[in-house]
Simulated scan of single mutants.
Amino acid sequence: MFDYFFKKQLRLSSSINFQNVFRKPAKKKNTLEISILGRFNLLGYPRLGLSISRKNIKHAHNRNLIKRLVRETFRLLQYKLLSMDFVVIAKKNILYLNNKKIIDMLNSLWLNYHR
């Protein structure tokens, strides 16, 4: 049985990890509202990093909402994903979507990274 927690080991925490993904992403999938960069790791499990800038999304409650939605979709699909480091980048246009559309879009983007 799987535990669907979002543990600390599943997070990209250091700037070196983010730089590695930004420097040479193995896969890049994007829409007008969101992009997911991925780079393979040797850990055997996926990790998630979020890059949601204040320049694009001004209000903290909107940034936090997007972070929660991304984390939730990642948490539910973590056992189906490849062993990669992912960085999710949100763009300005994401503010015009409702939560259901954001979740559907994220799920369709995560499908590109399934085992």
Results as ranks from 00 to 15, higher is better:
R39H: 05
H114Q: 15
L48F: 06
L43S: 11
L10M: 11
L50H: 03
R47N: 06
P46Y: 04
G38F: 01
D104Y: 11
R47I: 02
F6S: 03
E33P: 00
G49E: 10
N17R: 06
I57S: 08
Y45W: 07
L77D: 01
R39A: 09
G38N: 09
I89M: 10
N107G: 08
K27Y: 09
A90V: 02
L42N: 15
Q19N: 13
L97D: 07
Q19R: 14
R115M: 06
M105P: 01
F2G: 05
G49I: 09
Q19V: 07
Y96G: 08
T31W: 01
S35C: 09
A26F: 04
L32G: 15
F2V: 06
N112W: 05
I102P: 03
F22T: 06
R11D: 03
N93S: 02
F22W: 13
L42W: 00
P25Q: 10
H114C: 13
I94L: 11
F18M: 06
K55C: 06
I103T: 14
A26Y: 07
L111C: 10
K91H: 12
Q78E: 00
R68W: 04
N56C: 08
G44D: 08
P25M: 12
M84R: 06
K8R: 15
R11W: 02
I36V: 13
L43I: 11
L10W: 07
V87F: 07
L111N: 11
F6W: 05
K100Y: 09
R47P: 03
L97M: 13
G38L: 09
N107T: 05
L76T: 11
I57W: 05
L97A: 07
L109Q: 10
M84G: 02
I52V: 15
A90M: 04
N93D: 07
K7A: 07
H114S: 10
L32K: 14
